[in-house]
Structure formats: structure tokens, C-alpha cells
Amino acid sequence: MCESNAYIEENGNETLFLETVDIIRPEGMNIYLRDFWGQEKVFKGRIKEISLLKHRIVLVRQECEDV
């Protein structure tokens, strides 16, 4: 299987967000993810890193920008 696990990085720590991610799609300021079994999650932030060899997706929360 070629699916990846998605993790949220905060304060130097990573927590599992979704396992066996099959689809990842940017949608504006959000990241849409769906796993192998059809579970869907939306993360408000950005992709920090994707490692295809390690099957890892690292997400970070979107920082507020001053306007």
C-alpha cells in the first residue's frame, strides 16, 4: 500500500491526524484529506512536508497574518 499518515506539527511535536491518507487536496486555506476507508477530515493550515519514501505528510496550523 502506498498511503501515507498525516501528522500535525506543533511546538516541535508531531501528533497523528489521519492514517492511510489516500487523497490530499488544498482547498483555499484548508487541506482536505481522505483515508483509504473514506473517512474525511479538513485541516486549517498548510503542508510543511511530504515524504513519499517515508509515507509521511506533515501539516502545520495556519498562522494569522496581520492585515
Results as ranks from 00 to 15, higher is better:
Val58Lys: 04
His55Tyr: 02
Lys44Glu: 04
Val21Pro: 06
Arg61His: 02
Gly45Ser: 06
Met29Tyr: 13
Lys41Asp: 02
Leu18Met: 14
Val42His: 02
Arg46Gln: 12
Arg56Asp: 02
Glu14Phe: 09
Leu59Tyr: 11
Phe36Lys: 14
Ile57Gln: 01
Arg56Thr: 04
Gly38Ile: 10
Leu52Glu: 11
Ile23Thr: 02
Gln62Asp: 12
Leu33Ile: 12
Asp66Cys: 10
Phe36Ala: 15
Leu59His: 11
Glu9Lys: 14
Lys44Thr: 10
Glu14Pro: 04
Ala6Tyr: 00
Val21His: 03
Asp22Ile: 02
Ile50Arg: 13
Leu52Asp: 03
Leu53Tyr: 13
Asn13Arg: 15
Gly45Val: 02
Arg61Asn: 09
Asn5Trp: 01
Cys64Asp: 15
Gly45Leu: 01
Asn30Met: 06
Gly45Phe: 03
Phe17Gly: 00
Lys41Met: 08
Glu3Pro: 08
Lys48Arg: 14
Ile23Arg: 07
Asn11Gly: 09
Glu65His: 09
Lys48Trp: 07
Ser51Thr: 10
Glu40Gly: 07
Met29Glu: 13
Glu27Ser: 11
Pro26Glu: 05
Gly28Thr: 01
Asn30Asp: 00
Ala6Trp: 03
Phe36Pro: 03
Asn11Met: 06
Arg25Ile: 07
Met1Thr: 05
Glu3His: 10
Glu14Gln: 12
Ile8Glu: 04
Val58Tyr: 08
Ile50Glu: 05
Lys48His: 04
Glu49Leu: 12
Ala6Asn: 02
Glu40Leu: 10
Val67Gln: 11
Leu33His: 07
Ser51Gly: 10
Asp35Arg: 10
Glu65Asp: 13
Glu14Met: 14
Val21Gln: 08
Pro26Ile: 06
Lys48Gly: 00
Val58Phe: 08
Tyr32Ile: 09
Asn13Lys: 15
Thr20Pro: 00
Asp66His: 15
Leu18Thr: 13
Ser4Asp: 02
Glu63Asp: 12
Asn5Phe: 05
Glu14Lys: 15
Asn11Ser: 13
Asp66Leu: 15
Cys2Asn: 15
Leu18Lys: 05
Val42Lys: 12
Lys54Val: 04
Met1Leu: 06
Cys64Val: 15
Leu33Glu: 07
Leu53Glu: 14
Asn13Gln: 13
Gly12Pro: 03
Asn11Ile: 00
Thr15Asp: 06
Gln39Gly: 08
Ile57Pro: 03
Phe36Ile: 13
Ile50His: 06
Ile47Arg: 03
Arg34Asn: 09
Leu33Thr: 09
Arg46Tyr: 08
Ala6Leu: 01
Tyr7Gly: 09
Arg46Asn: 10
Gly12His: 03
Glu10Ala: 10
Met1Pro: 01
Glu49Thr: 04
Cys2Leu: 15
Leu53Trp: 14
Gly12Phe: 09
Arg61Glu: 15
Tyr7Arg: 02
Asp22His: 12
Gln39Pro: 03
Val67Glu: 12
Cys64Glu: 14
Thr20Met: 14
Glu63Asn: 08
Asn11Val: 03
Ser51Met: 06
Trp37Tyr: 15
Lys54Glu: 15
Leu53His: 11
